[in-house]
Design a protein around this nucleic acid. Structure first.
Lengths: 243, 243
DNA sequence: CGCCCCGTTGAACTTCTTCAATACGCGTGG
DNA sequence: CCACGCGTATTGAAGAAGTTCAACGGGGCG
């Protein structure tokens, strides 16, 4: 159980130390497992009454389109992330969701979710904690686009992604596998794809990070953290915050 | 009662038609009334265990500081807005809150809030609806900074603010009073104050909107909406969404 | 009166975008 | 098996958008 935890359990475990009982309650949450091919939207803007999902494998992005045709990616979800928590609670999806890779996700029914929460409140705390972190990340993203230049922004993004992946066992302080194209990066960072390319080259040439062939390698983690003004505290928590 | 509603009641009423009973339950929510002078932070980053507030008068902004000294304003709160709902539920404030003007706000204790929610669920729905709208606004803000140029961004911002103010009776389709300096606008839009000045001049000279002497006047609302790619639907709802 | 904050404008400069062209890998159909 | 097309990565050069530096005017307040 401990060795083969799901990414979701692993992530929650970083926030709240979970008992065997709570872990099994978590298992009962998982509904039907569904697969989605890369590229075709899972969720459309304005769609109502949809399920939530827990990502088991693969990456997705949440984005909004503008009338001019450009798009802004609001955030990425990686394995272990909860998808559509808000839209279950409020039944309003104001953005689209597109799988970046092939994706496997477990459906979570609103009923089961609420039931589990009332039976194991610590689990609810953990999930809401995770949701709160997601919100904070959107704010941090906003700050980055508004007040960081392209290089700092990219550095911060790669570090944050690394921290999140490490939390679910998909990365380490030395690097991680990353399926994002430069076009996706551009839409996330509010840049052009060409500039993304240049920025990545500069970061590489300065010996800070190498992002090539779907692999991010931190060549100088401290230097990168410094450049990005990255808050290292939540990069490094190995034990649960709440015993 | 109906004539002299608080801004908060007025806003919730736009989402959910409230009965007399629900309105009086709302009244019981309001705790001690506090006043804050302009300029001195009400909430600091990292502060724990603080109250929530409902703004009665005045404007505040929520912002984050970067190590370089620049800051990014995440959003503004106006009369009727709930302040710190999240930090009551999660007890983590990851940003600062500064009054833009002198502010009067009613304290809301977590206990009273939850109690009221369980007694009058429709009120809970209304509050969460409002919270959800706030979240959506942060996302829209992110999109604007990432993918709209300065003029479109400013236009969108002024329209959104107008829509929010109209909801609480502090504005109309022709304009509203706005205490924000060009420096505050700059920090909100991710621009320099100088460029904000230029953009405002251009918008004025093109006959779209005039922002001078603390007053925003929509000179050509349709033209502005067009320029900003503004979703007019929630600008215009005069009646409650939920009877 | 003088100070400070805010608004305003000009001019030089940086950052990022756009346009254009080339290269590479991979899968498909001939 | 190879040619072709498509999506992605890469680079150069010109141009647009926004920043920075510098200076000045006006109004409110101690």
């Amino acid at each position: 159980m401990t060795a083969l935890q799901s990414p979701f359990a692993r992530k929650l475990g970083a926030f709240v130390a979970l008992s065997e009982e709570e872990l099994s309650a978590l298992d009962s949450l998982y509904g039907r497992r569904k697969a989605f091919p890369a590229g075709r939207d899972m969720v459309h803007q304005g769609q109502t009454d949809q399920s939530a999902y827990i990502l088991a494998s693969g990456w997705v992005c949440s984005y909004k389109l503008l009338s001019g045709g450009s798009r802004q990616i609001v955030d990425f979800q990686i394995p272990g992330d909860f998808l559509g928590l808000r839209s279950v609670l409020f039944r309003t999806s104001d953005h689209n969701v597109e799988p970046v890779t092939r994706v496997e996700a477990s459906e979570v029914l609103a009923k089961d979710l609420l039931e589990t929460f009332s039976k194991t409140p610590r689990l609810a705390t953990a999930v809401l904690w995770a949701a709160s972190r997601d919100e904070a990340m959107v704010v941090e993203h906003l700050v980055g686009i508004g007040r960081r230049n392209a290089k700092e922004r990219m550095a911060h993004f790669l570090l944050e992604l690394g921290a999140r992946l490490k939390l679910v066992g998909l990365g380490s302080t030395s690097g991680y596998a990353c399926p994002l194209s430069q076009y996706l990066l551009a839409d996330a960072m509010g840049l052009s794809a060409i500039h993304v390319n240049r920025v990545l080259r500069e970061l590489r040439e300065e010996g800070l990070v190498t992002f090539q062939h779907g692999q991010v390698e931190f060549d100088d983690l401290d230097g990168l953290v410094l450049l990005a003004d990255f808050d290292k505290t939540y990069l490094d928590h190995d034990g649960p915050l709440l015993k």
